[in-house]
Amino acid sequence: MVMMNRGAVYEVLPGPEGILPPAATVMGVCLPEEGEGLLHGRIVSEEEAMRSAAIAMLTRRNPTLFPGPLMLWGWTEHTRDKSAPFFEVAREIPGVRIIPMPDYRPIYPKIDPEAVINPCHPNLTIWHNKIEACVLIGVHCHFANVTLKIIRGGTNCFTIALCAEAGHEDAMSSVPNVGAEKIARFAEILRLVKKEGVKPLYAGQGIIPSGWAQVASLGGSAGGQNGAFVDNGLSHHGLSHDLEHGLDENEE
């Protein structure tokens, strides 16, 4: 049912909006057409959506790129083509992190918020790394929307969705039909706004150690430690990444 908030226009702003923010769609926010984008729930030009996204990524704390399965795995030529412009974007954002969303399962026993983000509790990764601007890219739309609402509810993160399909109302900024070309265009816009005088929050160039690359550099080692497998003699590789004590995700 469409629960319109008649009169007032619903704005999709960085949170924390509190418990269960509504899906922006049911508040009347519509998806953009090709050539357009969404900014705070308003239809704007693609350029304007990208500019605001660029400024957020350059000026807010701990900007992070969250590549999903459709970005991480080169399963089609289309995805493989997106890699180079993705890293071009990363290099234009001083101090950016890359933290993947490799899959959507509730990871057992708990996620390592430095290594991954997960749609079941994306806020944990945002909080832990104090991320105030992020880009979701290559995440299947259902899981992106689930994620974006939880982030808006519990964090002050400025969310950006570069979507290969129709775009995302629940992001603060979103552009539809994003392929390699539009990613490259985003890199260009990052350069442009810097040239126009937007001063990046962080000095220097590019990507800081992040994701598993960071965990590994800190001496993170694989190996399950909770003894879930008593028949552990079978395994030499061990299981998953290093895990600290935390919420048991799978308690029945």
Binding site: P67, M71, L72, W73, G74, W75, T76, T79, R80, K82, S83, A84, F86, F87, I98, I99, P100, P102, D112, A115, V116, S210, G211, W212, A213, V215, A216, G220, A222, L239, S240, H241
Partner: peptide
């Protein structure tokens, strides 16, 4: 192809 990592992303993937 679904476990072929896209160029540049391998080091960011979790160890598993």
């Amino acid at each position: 192809e679904t476990i072929r990592v896209a160029p540049g992303f391998k080091e960011y993937l979790p160890r598993e």
